[in-house]
């Protein structure tokens, strides 16, 4: 039974925000190690978990389905063995932050909707 306050949409939005925050940590790690020899750029792979969910046809909550931390294979490796591309990481950082703010805004609007329902439109 769906809870009136924490309905699936709210929960989904909250989970998505957590995911984006995790991804920010990964991207921040990459940026911190932009000059560390041998460091390989990391990325949160959520796509394969989602694809897996589609393939198995089970989209409901599965605690075992988590984004996995993978090496970012698309990035070219520098002479010192480091594969952090500054431009790419900054672009990802900006996109990730923007999405997080958008998710927060949607959640905020849902809260406002709930408030309207509670207080009425007097």
């Amino acid at each position: 039974m769906a809870n009136i306050v924490f309905d699936p949409t709210m929960q989904g939005l909250a989970d998505a925000m957590t995911l984006h925050q995790r991804r920010h940590e990964v991207l921040a790690s990459n940026l911190a190690n932009v000059e560390t020899p041998g460091f390989k750029a990391q990325e949160l792979d959520f796509k394969s978990a989602l694809q897996d969910a589609f393939d198995t046809g089970r989209l409901e909550d599965d605690p075992n389905r988590k984004p996995s931390l993978v090496e970012d294979a698309t990035a070219p490796v520098r002479a010192d063995g480091n594969s952090v591309d500054l431009d790419l990481q900054m672009a990802k950082l900006a996109t990730n932050g923007g999405r997080y703010v958008a998710l927060a805004k949607i959640l905020q609007l849902r809260m406002a909707l709930l408030r309207t329902a509670i207080e009425g439109t007097r």
């Binding site: 995790r22 940590e25 790690s29 911190a32 190690n33 560390t36 931390l69």
Partner: peptide, 9 residues
């Protein structure tokens, strides 16, 4: 599951 995600320098 996300061990190793937080890598400082």
């Amino acid at each position: 599951s996300e061990r190793g995600a937080r890598q400082g320098v």
